[in-house]
Design a protein around this nucleic acid. Structure first.
Length: 752
DNA sequence: AGCACGCCGACT
DNA sequence: GTCGGCGTGCTC
């Protein structure tokens, strides 16, 4: 019997063995097939098929192999290098192969939403028949005995000029409606056909796509960086380079030059960008540089657009792909360069299964393709910089900004002193207010960052000390004044804002802590004439709202932009000369080993938003911990200093990058149950003979209750991920009922 | 993840 | 007496 291995889109299932009915040709690896699974029929993907009779394995399954129902592709659908990459992901991140492959599939490919796999969009095209052409040619206004109307004659004229035919929608916009076309069709003068069209995600339309980019002159520093990377790329072997360039040093221009080189050498370029609002802008930059042979893949696209972009790549119509993390699986051939922009960014890590880090998968993809991987950042992750330090990565550094613009001057405001002089309710320090007033008077712009949404962090009763907590999660509810509600930022539960304590009915309820909504209100109060806008998840819920707001800011219709970290990343606003950071230490209190790193990155990045034009910028950082090293080093823009100090901490605490970390979270109906089950796994893990890893825990997770579930967690720390993962999977495999409630996170970005 | 099977409360 | 709650187990 001929057997094939099929990956099915079911988590925690390995590939399954099916047989091929007699007379059916062996499908190629990467072909989609319809297979039965229990009572269901699913679209799977062939991952092994040698066409040989395999009686041994058939016996192994004791006649329980079911037949493949249908082969959907006669040629490979997923290219085999993508299958190889997904297989690596499944293994490394301990998820099912089907799940990993589902991530690599284009949307709609598995036909989950009923019906067979779709679908290109088609449009109706009207085209003249031979007879139609004939009539049109003779037509000098009379139309003979056909008695054609004005619209019908116009249609003939337009269509004569378009031998390929015209879309009916296009004709309609010229005033030629369906009646006219139907009549002509009835007379046999024209026919309708359907034509495949691509949904174009480049909103700006093709006009700006073809607009040539202005010639940019590289600085000597950029020039030598390009030269260095170019020589690495030319070797056509796998290597990784870390491009460490301060904010505003012109990394994008380097990517473009390098991509252009690699492309001319006939190899493909994959560009990953973080999941942020300006993804379309970066894509547009590449499109302007390279024209039509660029595809984009990001979460803002509709399924249809993504589907079309995927097929363009698959057909070989493009040689540059720009996209967010899942684009790492793009079916691009002959890859010679993989770029990961802002490689430190947390959004490269997928926080649901498969929990992969797009940056790390990108490096693996480069390795499998024998390509150069370039990781770029002003604030590299600890992992990447350490790899550069011990020469696993080549280090390329840009110390200067383009045009030698100076970095912002940073001032720290100690909020403990501010509280002494102005009381504990102060949000904007005197220093920040004064600076804002000056800048606004001069017609310059300011950005104010606070990495916390809402109006107030919690509601507190002064009488009985109760707080308003989420019924489903172990957090307090955040006050949103615009909605007049208190809301949970984890499960989205919300309740009306109470006027009295819900516990003791006492009238003295107090709002504790503040977020961006409050900051916005304070600024409006202090600067009534200023045009203020806020950018956070609450104000940009609608699609396109953020680019609209940022566009208005760039057009100087807004003076002050208040927001969370989403205003800190990447944007280039030349008129911004002041950046205020309200509570720089938000996040430092979290029990997360990356807290300092994230704070350093955020402060450095946001300070980099100031002074990108001709006027020198200034950043004012308000904090309760002015001496904390992440704040100190960020203010001095001293990356190396921060890295050294943070590395000591990570080594002392045995955290990454000193060691590999795997986090397991066990969910349960009760705290007790979750802890007990986690404890059982931990015990099994410790029982292994002389394990090359340490087990820490179990303990309640930092968020011990989330969406109504109790959570316990433990950690594996060691030097060999393979052994750690294997031991964990072994412990889980003998406890299937615990396994289904356990999240395994390899190389966690956050352990909350 | 589905989906079935299976064993206990409120309904026609 | 059933309808249906979701606990647990399996899917080649």
């Amino acid at each position: 019997m001929r057997l094939v291995r099929v990956a099915v889109p079911v988590p925690a299932l390995d590939s399954l063995t099916y047989c091929l009915p007699d007379g059916v040709a062996v499908p190629p690896i990467g072909a989609r097939v319809l297979v039965p699974l229990g009572s269901r029929v699913l679209t799977g993907c062939v991952v092994e098929a040698d066409g040989q009779e395999d009686d041994d394995r058939e016996r192994e399954y004791a006649g329980r192999v079911k037949p493949v129902l249908q082969i959907l592709d006669s040629e490979s659908f997923l290219p085999d290098d993508v299958i190889r990459l997904a297989t690596w992901v499944a293994d490394y991140y301990a998820c099912g192969i089907g799940e990993a492959l589902a991530t690599a599939m284009p949307p709609l490919a598995t036909g989950k939403r009923g019906g067979p796999a779709p679908s290109f969009r088609t449009v109706r095209v009207a085209r003249l028949t031979a007879q139609g052409l004939d009539v049109a040619a003779r037509d000098d206004g009379g139309s003979g005995d056909l008695r054609l109307g004005v619209r019908q004659r116009e249609a003939l004229a337009l269509l004569t000029a378009a031998p390929e035919g015209l879309e009916t929608a296009r004709l309609a916009s010229s005033g030629i409606g369906p009646q006219a076309l139907t009549r002509l069709s009835g007379l046999g003068l024209l026919t309708f056909t359907r034509r495949q069209v691509e949904r174009d995600p480049f909103q700006a339309g093709s006009s700006s796509c073809t607009a040539p980019r202005p010639e940019v002159v590289l600085t000597p520093e950029q020039e030598s960086a390009v030269e260095r990377l170019r020589s690495l790329a030319a070797q056509n072997i796998f290597q990784t380079a870390l491009l460490h360039g301060v904010t505003g040093s012109g990394k994008t221009e380097i990517y473009l030059r390098l991509a252009s080189e690699v492309r001319s050498a006939g190899r493909g370029v994959l560009v990953l960008v973080p999941e942020i609002a300006l993804t379309p802008a970066v894509a547009q930059t590449f499109r302007s540089a390279f024209g039509e042979r660029v595809a984009i893949q990001h979460s803002g696209l509709s399924d249809g657009e993504r589907h079309d972009q995927w097929h363009r790549i698959r057909r070989g119509d493009v040689d540059v792909v720009v996209g967010t993390r899942s684009a790492v699986f793009a079916p691009l051939r002959g890859i010679g360069l993989v770029i990961v922009d802002e490689e430190h960014d947390g959004s490269y890590k997928q926080e649901e299964s498969p929990r992969y880090n797009g940056r790390d998968v990108a490096v693996m993809r480069a390795r499998q393709a024998g390509a150069l991987a370039v990781l770029g950042s002003a604030t590299p992750s600890m992992e990447s910089y350490q790899n550069a330090q011990n020469s696993r990565y080549a280090l390329v550094t840009l110390d200067r900004r383009v045009l030698d613009r100076p970095l912002a001057e940073v001032r720290i405001v100690d909020m403990r002193e501010e509280y002494e002089t102005s009381g504990p309710d102060v949000v904007l320090s005197g220093v920040l207010c004064e600076a804002m007033r000056e800048r606004l008077e001069r017609g310059e712009q300011a950005i104010v960052l606070l990495n916390r949404r809402g109006f107030a962090s919690s509601v507190f009763c002064r009488q009985c000390t109760a707080t308003l907590d989420c019924p489903n999660c172990s957090v307090s509810l955040t006050v949103h004044r615009a909605a007049n509600r208190a809301r949970c930022h984890y499960c989205n539960h919300s309740s009306p804002l109470p006027k009295a304590c819900i516990n003791c009915s006492g009238p003295y309820i107090e709002l504790v802590g503040f977020g961006t909504e409050r900051v916005e209100a304070e600024i409006r109060l202090k600067f009534p004439a200023a045009r203020v806008a806020r950018v956070d998840r609450d104000t940009i819920r609608k699609r396109g709202a953020i680019s609209a707001l940022l566009g208005r800011f760039a057009a100087r219709e807004i003076d002050v932009l208040v927001g969370t970290q989403m205003i800190a990343k990447g944007h280039d606003f030349p008129r911004v000369t002041l950046v205020g950071v309200i509570s720089a230490d938000v996040g430092l209190g979290l029990a997360d080993f990356r807290a300092s790193e994230r704070t350093f990155q955020l402060l450095t990045q946001v300070a980099g938003r100031a002074g990108r034009g001709e006027i020198r910028g200034e950043a004012i950082v308000q904090t309760l911990f002015p001496n904390h090293y992440s704040i100190q080093h960020a203010c001095r823009q001293d990356y190396a200093g921060f890295f050294q100090q943070e590395l000591k901490f990570r080594q002392a605490m045995r955290y990454p990058p000193a060691l590999a970390l795997i986090n397991a979270v066990v969910k349960g109906r009760t705290q007790h149950g979750a802890l007990r089950d986690a404890g059982e796994l931990v015990q099994a893990l410790r029982a292994g003979t002389s394990q090359p890893y340490r087990v820490l825990g179990p303990a309640p997770a930092a968020l011990s209750r989330l969406k109504g579930e109790h959570r316990a967690q433990f950690f594996l720390k060691g030097t060999h991920r393979g052994a750690m993962r294997q031991a964990l999977l072994a412990a889980l495999s003998t406890r299937p009922e615990i396994r289904r409630r356990t999240i395994v996170d390899v190389d966690p970005m956050s352990v909350l």
